[in-house]
Design a protein around this nucleic acid. Structure first.
Lengths: 230, 230
DNA sequence: CGTGCAATTGAAAGTACTCAAGCCACGTGG
DNA sequence: CCACGTGGCTTGAGTACTTTCAATTGCACG
């Protein structure tokens, strides 16, 4: 989540996220172990007992839910430094899967939380992370509840852009299906919006997994709904 | 939030919420003061400095955002025992308004958070509250991203039912506009769905602010998308 | 140079929205 | 006591946007 924080696509858009990385350094790493995952590999499933929580060291992870009718909802993407699996109580609320080859730090859950609670400073940092994440979830509620397909995709492109801290040669690390499931859309709609953006030169695409933003302000406007793109 | 917790409209639906009330008793109440609000009165506005955080003692509050185009998004409703305004950093992320006549406990923010951080036990409880709230926000993301209008309204009715812990004579404390803005719909759509439910006897309505659930399982099915209501 | 998966495109259908009118309860004032 | 106005809710008709279903294209890999 850290890397997605620099630019915010909402007018309510708030402070830049503090990278969870900071927390990593301060956190109790002694009891943690490294686990490596291949692309597509599942770390845990929704409903699994949750003895550990995790932190991305390398690669990109996603957390998702599978609905009764088989559709999926991608709760979030996590890149280097981000904590995940923390807000789950006794069992995991999502399924976690590697989008790329990954390495994750595995913290024994109870010991980890206890050691955080024991230190006022760590507690404060951890609270900040949770509050920020709650804030971000609520931003996303506005997005899913009120924004058009074009606005959602535009906001997502901006997030990717800030994640990779550039406006050219930005990679889609995740599939169209992942994007659609994250934005509450279908792959077809995502594809059509991207085509529209491409035709109106709001973005340039070298291939289906790589794009550039020639004029970030126009994309910003598209995300904010200031001006629709045709 | 406490009172909404008994029944969960999602299959991912997780554990019942612990009432924030528990926390109230344990919390540092010495420095807190009571503030009373009339129906419709605003406690604070989005962007205001946030020197306090609050807890509902009486009545129902709502928090909402106003979007650039004037539409609103109701982040959540809070009833007796619920904490709110906590996840905001230096300034409030939402506007808080009284839906009914209210009384709220006002905690000086920094002192409050410090005293929480100082006690491992309080820290743990506070973390639980935040995690639960994050979890709920993510449930709502699924709702807004993937559920139909009928499913959203059904889930909301179930929430009201569990809040008031009964299936007959349940009150809508909030307006249709508030409901619509909470569910990412329009008042017309909310109204139409209620009419459909009424016609198919999934609910009974004595007047526009009062309803009953004769068969809660049918409403459950409607919320889960097992069977559509016509 | 096929094979297979991912992404794109097209056409048709459906759902929720917009705009507009009507209804109803309630409070005010003649 | 009743006419009137107001605000909240409901209903209707038409529209716009997204989805669904069905091909088709593009690209990586054997």
């Amino acid at each position: 989540m850290a890397a997605f924080a620099n630019r915010n696509a909402f007018e309510n858009g708030a402070e830049p996220l503090k990278s969870d990385m900071t927390f990593a350094a301060a956190g109790p790493a002694a009891t943690a172990s490294i686990k490596r995952l291949k692309t597509g590999e599942t770390l845990y499933m929704e409903g699994d007992r949750a003895p550990y929580c995790y932190q991305v060291v390398e690669g990109v992870m996603k957390e998702y839910n599978t609905l009764a009718d088989g559709r999926r909802h991608v709760a979030d993407f996590y890149s280097v430094g981000d904590l995940f699996g923390i807000s789950d109580g006794g069992e995991h609320a999502h399924t976690a899967q590697a989008i790329t080859d990954c390495a994750v730090l595995r913290h024994p859950r109870n010991a980890y939380l206890r050691s955080i609670a024991a230190s006022p400073e760590l507690s404060q940092q951890f609270l900040d992370i949770l509050m920020t994440r709650l804030h971000r979830a609520r931003q996303r509620l506005i997005m899913l509840g009120r924004m058009s397909a074009a606005q959602r995709v535009a906001a997502f492109l901006l997030r990717l852009s800030s994640e990779q801290q550039k406006t050219d040669k930005i990679q889609f690390v995740m599939s169209r299906q992942d994007i659609a499931d994250h934005l509450g859309l279908t792959i077809e709609t995502v594809s059509r919006v991207l085509t529209t953006f491409r035709n109106s030169r709001v973005i340039e695409m070298t291939n289906s997994r790589c794009f550039a933003i020639p004029d970030i302000d126009r994309l910003d406007e598209a995300a904010h709904g200031v001006k629709a793109i045709h």
